[in-house]
Amino acid sequence: MLSASDLADRLAQNAESVCRHYLSAGRRAGNYWLVGDVANNKGRSLYVHLIGPRAGRWTDAATGQFGDLLDLVRETRGLVNFRDVAEEARHFLSLPHPEPVSARRTRGGDASPLERPTAERARRLFRKTQPLAGTLADIYLRERGILRASTHGALRFHPSCYYRDLVTGRTTSYPALIAAVTDAAGAITGVHRTYLSSGLDPDGVGKAKLDDPRRALGGLLGNGVRFHFPVDAPVPVLAAGEGLETMLSLSHVMPGMPMAAALTANHLAAFRFPPGCLRIYIAADADAAGRHGIEGLSRRAQECGVLPLVLSPELGDFNEDLRWLGPDRLTASLRAQLTPEDAMAYLPA
């Protein structure tokens, strides 16, 4: 009879089928399965690793729950005794399951895009982009009050970026804002894509009308989209947060401070501190996932001897502050939250 460890391993080998069976309200997004929670509600808070050494591991960013696929079976079925969980898992493993999409696509020996290392695919995509200035992506950011985005080398534009619907499999393309995700040495490990509308919308340029107009590709864990980071030099003070537009809004009024957008709450919690870091300002988001990211990064900072300080917006996020309250009001709010020496160094007099 299979042990608990064997059952967990067998489930992990069929992680996508497990998710489709027990979390049918979710969907695949790259190497993850996304769903609202263990009750199988729609959403994106809970994510399951589908491939790699962490296949089968899952985390609910909103509640802090985590575990392997045996835990997931227990939670979704409301089981208490391990004997019942094991019986449910054995029953599932006895069922016929379709091949995962990725396996079907690579049958026959020809390497497909899904078979290549994701970091390599991310670098190839970034090489196909063009400078941001004057593009639809630049206009998109300007309409959000971010006027100097084209000065950031991490931001580029792709006029026709590949997009695949993860539910129907239909493929198409959209213009996209492309952001390079880099490690501490400046090497590109991934990209973040914001798919945009064509620009013909009377309300202005906005995100494409898709269920998931933002997608990441490659290695995000510990890394981020970086602005104003010095090359081969200590970074004693920096700001980090989840969203790209959040950090670009802060950079708009503090153009000299090194900043990083980790892109999700869980990746924010895992962000790696640069050499020489003494203080890190964590840009707050109001939702539960945002609080999870702040708490995780603060805890790690304290363990590493780095002082964590939280920056809070007046409205829902810092881009709303920039757009609706204006840069002067945002600057004044930040001045009250920075240390006096950092306010003097990074904010206009």
Rank of each mutant, 00 (worst) to 15 (best):
L315K: 07
G326Y: 11
N319R: 02
G256P: 13
D317I: 01
R299C: 13
L297M: 09
A239R: 07
V235H: 09
V306E: 09
E320M: 03
P258N: 03
P236S: 10
A239N: 08
F227A: 09
A261N: 08
L268F: 02
M247A: 03
I282C: 05
P313I: 04
E303H: 11
R291K: 15
V231I: 14
D321K: 10
C304W: 14
A216L: 01
S251H: 12
A301T: 12
A284V: 06
L263K: 04
G218D: 05
C277W: 01
L250W: 08
F273D: 02
R279N: 00
G326V: 10
M254C: 13
R323P: 01
G276A: 12
F318H: 03
R226H: 04
F271K: 05
A270E: 15
L325W: 04
L220N: 05
R300W: 09
Q302Y: 02
D285Q: 02
A270S: 14
C277R: 08
A233W: 11
G326L: 03
D321A: 01
L217W: 08
R291D: 10
G296R: 09
F227S: 06
P313V: 11
I280F: 05
I282D: 03
V225D: 00
M259S: 11
M259D: 07
R299N: 13
P230I: 03
E245T: 14
L315W: 04
F227I: 11
A240C: 13
D321H: 02
A216H: 07
C277I: 00
P327Y: 06
L307T: 15
H267V: 05
G219R: 12
D287V: 01
D285N: 13
L322T: 10
A286S: 14
G224P: 01
E295A: 15
R299D: 13
R226Q: 14
T264L: 03
Q302L: 14
L309N: 08
A289C: 14
S298V: 09
A261D: 09
D285M: 06
C304T: 12
E320T: 05
Q302I: 14
A289S: 15
M257W: 00
G290W: 09
S249Q: 04
S312C: 05
G218W: 08
A265Q: 11
P327S: 05
A240Q: 09
D285S: 06
L297I: 15
V310Y: 04
M257P: 12
A262E: 04
H228P: 01
P258H: 04
F271P: 06
D317P: 07
A284H: 12
P327V: 01
S312H: 15
L244S: 08
A289E: 15
F318N: 03
V306C: 04
E314A: 11
A283P: 09
H252K: 08
R215Q: 14
R215C: 02
P258C: 06
V310Q: 12
P274V: 06
W324D: 11
E242D: 04
L244W: 10
D321L: 06
V231W: 12
R299Y: 13
Y281C: 00
V253N: 08
V237I: 15
L325A: 04
G296L: 12
L268I: 04
A239F: 01
R323N: 05
V237E: 14
